[in-house]
Design a protein around this nucleic acid. Structure first.
Length: 550
RNA sequence: GCGGAUAUAAUCUAGUGGUUAUGAUAUUGGCUUCCCAAGUCAAUCGCCCGGGUUCAAAUCCCGGUAUCCGCACCA
């Protein structure tokens, strides 16, 4: 079988300790991959670079929330509905449909299934065995029946459910961004595409909260002339952030800014700019919570364009959902320049009338009555213990008072850049993989950037001479003490050792040779040029530290 | 989930209903003392899982799992 680049990369990844299929000795499980020693390190480097962009450059705050999420949270967010579609398969034409898509408007999904009224819209065949397709992994919290829960399908809800605390932490100022890096889970029906479609995956998400009327970013001006790489489903083009926003290609500054931050991050990590573009979601492919979404797509020789980052405008969808479900105040306050004094009409209960009339319910009715807007005067009623209680007019007065209003409450909008870290890691391997011929033999180089490379420096004695070995080992130790990942190697020939380092992407190799004994210098070899320069032994740490800083 | 193909060592691969499964790479240890996978000697590691047919199965059949391709799905 001919091997394409994906096969070659996965072979190299397995052989060299980047990526292994999970639980392989038990036959493997589709949609799960392990990171080996080098893969873990590469992934850490990707995540840390990402933090550098969002935590430092963009001044976000980072939190960590559980992966197990109670049913109600995901019910409120809309995920439970979106994930439990009833599906039927047609044996004749081999298609599957959502039940709700193929039934008449006047019949419910339950009825249609019960009364066996499902027909294939393509061939007319009767359909049976409607079954729910739920893409969330479910579990329970606690013993026995416990409390229904899911493994989270995204990290975002953990941020939304803390919004009121985070808003306070941020001293009630907008905009502010909250990031989280962690695992997400989707029980894919058939995970194809190897590393690119996992059932358990790492995501890095930022939820940035904005005033809906002011979706501007403080850093926008500093990047407004930079070019974004866009794709409009016909052609690819480059356009400045400012122009894209002015022409309404991108709806607002905030979205454009995070698109640029994403592009900048991916290029810094070593994504090939020629294999990168942003594509806008059409209205029918938008997620249930999104009003606008741009995908950062990366090109794979085997799989084509693959979404690696989604940058969505989630509007106030999620916060509203949690407010509706819990009643928790998740509003932000837009302070007026001057407090406004307004006239407010309020119901003021007369407890001497209500007490005898409603007895033990009077207290609760009072509280509910005080919350009712006076405008709905015609029918004054409240819900208590599932009953509607009409409140007679003699139970209250309507009193007009002056109130000071400091500002206007609103539910913030959210711009969400959401990264599939595993996909980014895979694409760094694919985009940086190079093959050349050396003496007619295939020679592989992984051209990872110095910041991303798991091993930064190979350290070798030219030959196994004790004196050279001792010096090399000392250099190795010093570099490690300075925080630089090294790999000491004195096995085989020098060429073999260089080759080994090239294949795993190590950007530099130090060789201690006979001249070292004379003048205390070593050679430093550059992976991509194979050029060497002589550096004083004691200058090595300084020489490298700058190179590897983020 | 449907249809098709495939599954031999860490990686690639030859091969066959019948003794101890081929070769290369890799890895480890020598020799060589050497600046880009050199040579040499030695060692290490394997027939995806389960069931069936058979005197005998890694090979044939069935089921499972995984991978790849096509369809469907992909918030």
């Amino acid at each position: 079988m001919p091997q394409d680049i994906y096969d070659k990369i996965m072979m190299l990844a397995k052989r060299r300790g980047y990526i292994y299929p999970s639980f392989e000795i038990y036959g493997g499980v589709a949609g799960f991959y392990d990171y080996g020693p080098l893969g873990s390190q590469l992934k850490n480097n990707v995540e840390n670079l990402w933090r550098n962009f969002f935590l430092l450059k963009d001044n976000c705050i980072e939190i960590n929330t559980p992966t197990i999420t109670p049913h109600d949270v995901l019910k409120a967010s809309g995920h439970v509905e979106e994930f439990t579609d009833l599906t039927v398969d047609c044996e004749k034409c081999k298609r599957s449909y959502k039940v709700e898509d193929i039934i008449d408007d006047n019949i419910s999904v339950e009825q249609a299934v019960k009364e066996d009224k499902l027909k294939c819209p393509t061939c007319g065949k009767k359909l049976k065995d409607a079954h729910p397709v739920n893409l969330m992994f479910s579990t329970t919290i606690g013993a026995g029946k416990g409390r229904a829960a899911f493994l989270r399908p995204e990290t975002a809800q953990g941020i939304f459910t803390n919004f009121h605390l985070l808003y306070r932490y941020n001293r009630e100022r907008l905009p502010f961004g909250v990031i989280q890096i962690g695992k997400g889970y989707r029980n894919e029906i058939s995970p194809r595409q190897g590393m690119l479609r996992l059932r358990e995956f790492s995501m890095a998400e930022a939820e940035v909260f904005f005033d809906p009327e002011d979706k501007k970013h403080p850093n926008f001006d500093s990047v407004k002339d930079k070019k974004l790489f866009l794709f409009d489903n016909e052609k690819e083009f480059k356009i400045s952030l400012e122009e894209a926003v002015n022409k309404k290609i991108i709806n607002n500054q905030a979205l454009a800014y995070y698109m640029y931050l994403t592009q900048d991050f991916l290029f810094s990590a070593g994504v090939d700019p020629k294999k990168f573009r942003f594509r806008k979601h059409s209205s029918d492919e938008l997620a249930h919570y999104a009003i606008e979404c741009w995908d950062a797509e990366l090109y794979s020789k085997r799989f084509g364009w693959i979404e690696c980052v989604g940058i969505a405008d989630r509007s106030a969808y999620d916060l509203n959902a949690h407010i509706d479900f819990t009643g928790i105040d998740m509003y932000a306050l837009k302070k007026f320049a001057e407090p406004k004094v307004v006239n407010v009409k309020k119901f003021v209960p007369k407890m001497n009338v209500m007490g005898p009339l409603f007895k033990d319910k009077a207290g609760r009715i009072k509280e509910l009555l005080e919350k009712i807007d006076v405008k709905n005067k015609r029918k004054v009623s409240v819900e208590v213990d599932g009953e509607t209680v009409e409140i007679p007019e003699n139970c209250y007065e309507i009193v007009e008072t002056k109130e000071k209003i400091m500002g206007e409450k609103f539910v913030p909008h959210v711009i969400e850049p959401s990264y599939g870290i595993d996909r980014v890691v895979y694409f760094l391997l694919e985009h940086n993989y190079a093959e050349i011929k050396k003496k007619g033999e295939e020679y592989r180089i992984l051209k990872l950037t110095p910041q991303m490379a798991p091993i930064k420096v190979g350290v070798f004695p030219l030959i196994g001479d004790k004196k050279l070995v001792n010096i090399a080992k000392e250099i190795d130790k010093n570099l490690r003490n300075a925080g630089i990942e090294t790999y000491y190697d004195d096995g085989g020939t020098i060429g073999r050792r260089y080759a080994r380092m090239d294949e795993i992407g190590t950007p530099f190799c130090i060789t201690v040779d006979h001249d070292t004994l004379e003048d205390n210098t070593v050679t430093v070899r550059d992976r991509d040029t194979t050029q060497q320069e002589r550096i004083k032994q004691e200058q090595l740490t300084d020489y490298f530290q700058d190179t590897f800083a983020f």
